[in-house]
Design a protein around this nucleic acid. Structure first.
Length: 346
DNA sequence: AAACACGCCAACCGCCACTAG
DNA sequence: ACTAGTGGCGGTTGGCGTGTT
């Protein structure tokens, strides 16, 4: 027996909201609040909508101070940096961008930013076709699905940036795969990652806790709801801006006084390990079914021609974490402000 | 002008975590 | 400890507008 539906599906309206419905919902919530029960709300207001639908409409559209469209370059940078760090945790990313909703950011990423940043995958593919390395059109195959899209994208982005940053890591810096000039966002991401890596903490930002900051935003670590730090909203931007301007900054010297520097919680290691496990699984499937994997599809993902490189990178990523962990007592979650915690989902 | 392809985005769906009883 | 109800989240879908052929 499945769980009971939250509302009578047959008796609720679906589809776009009418201005009247919007007005009713907005009016009611502004006067009375949600009453702590979205499910009961539509009945009170007298609209035939599912409570969840009301909640979504309010949060994504009717709520005051919502911004739509017109993402700034700063916002792009923040979204990209956080996506690389934590993946598609849109609500967490949205929390860093006042006035933005997770839905908006998700749409923006899926429709624009992703293409902007990963578009070169197609370019590389096209290039390989020109050189004759691809002989068949891609078919829908099984192997690559093993690695989640999010993982692929993050890995791609990270490898892309990492290889440019550190050419010595030759095994995962097949520069021939990066034939193109970086676009401005990619350059900025690249630079901001350099800055982040200078703080000996790959991908993750250093954790500062500020006192008396008039405007604070919350930054989360990789674990879903772990609140790791409180930043003044300008700091993240400053970090990126400084790096963009080529200013060699150590985060602890050029950023405002901190009273503590914290490292990510151990969940980051779990996160890396899970990511690595995904790659391992992918590799083992690839090995087991190597003949069944379409070569053209593999070429579609040129970045994974050297999957051992990807694996090595994950080892490096995890080891880096371990090294930090060993040298610091602050990897635990002592500094993590308590938040209701959920299991990480991958 | 019509047909088609593509991009965008609001809204829906299903799952999971939390909580009160 | 268990269960039902609810909130919250991320993935996906479908409709609409715009561009291209």
């Amino acid at each position: 027996m499945g769980r009971a539906p939250c509302c009578d599906k047959a008796n609720v309206k679906k589809g776009p909201w009418s201005p009247e419905e919007d007005a009713k919902l907005k009016d009611y919530i502004e006067k009375h609040g949600t009453g702590g029960n979205w499910i009961a709300l539509p009945q009170k207001i007298g609209i035939k909508r599912c409570g969840k639908s009301c909640r979504l409409r309010w949060l994504n559209y009717l709520r005051p101070n919502i911004k739509h469209g017109g993402f700034s370059e700063e916002e792009d940078n923040i979204i990209c940096s956080l996506y690389i760090s934590i993946g598609s945790r849109w609500s967490i990313i949205a929390a860093q961008l006042p006035g933005r909703t997770d839905n908006d950011i998700k749409n923006y990423w899926n429709t624009r930013l992703k293409k902007k940043l990963l578009g070169r995958r197609k370019q590389c593919h096209d290039a390989s076709r020109i050189t004759g390395s691809t002989t068949q059109d891609a078919k829908n195959g099984s192997g690559l699905e093993t690695l989640s899209n999010s993982a692929i994208e993050r890995l791609q982005l990270h490898m892309q940036l990492q290889s440019l940053e550190n050419p010595n890591m030759s095994h995962h810096s097949n520069m021939s795969l990066w034939p193109c000039k970086l676009n401005p966002i990619q350059e900025k991401m690249m630079q901001s990652l350099q800055l982040l890596n200078q703080s000996s903490n790959p991908l993750m930002m250093q954790h500062h806790v500020f006192n008396d900051s008039p405007q604070k935003v919350q930054l989360y670590g990789p674990s879903n709801n772990h609140l790791h730090q409180v930043y003044p909203s300008n700091v993240l931007v400053n970090q990126i801006d400084h790096s963009i301007n080529g200013v060699q900054v150590g985060s602890s010297t050029h950023l405002p006084e901190t009273n503590s520097i914290k490292q990510p919680s151990m969940d980051f290691q779990q996160y890396c390990l899970a990511f690595q496990a995904e790659i391992d699984q992918f590799l083992s499937n690839k090995g087991a079914n190597s003949e069944s994997i379409d070569q053209a599809q593999a070429n579609e993902f040129d970045l994974f021609k050297d999957m051992d490189g990807a694996k090595d990178m994950m080892s490096w990523w995890s080891n880096e974490f371990d090294a930090n962990s060993a040298s610091s007592n602050s990897w635990d979650s002592n500094g993590v402000l308590d938040q209701p915690q959920r299991e990480m989902k991958y």
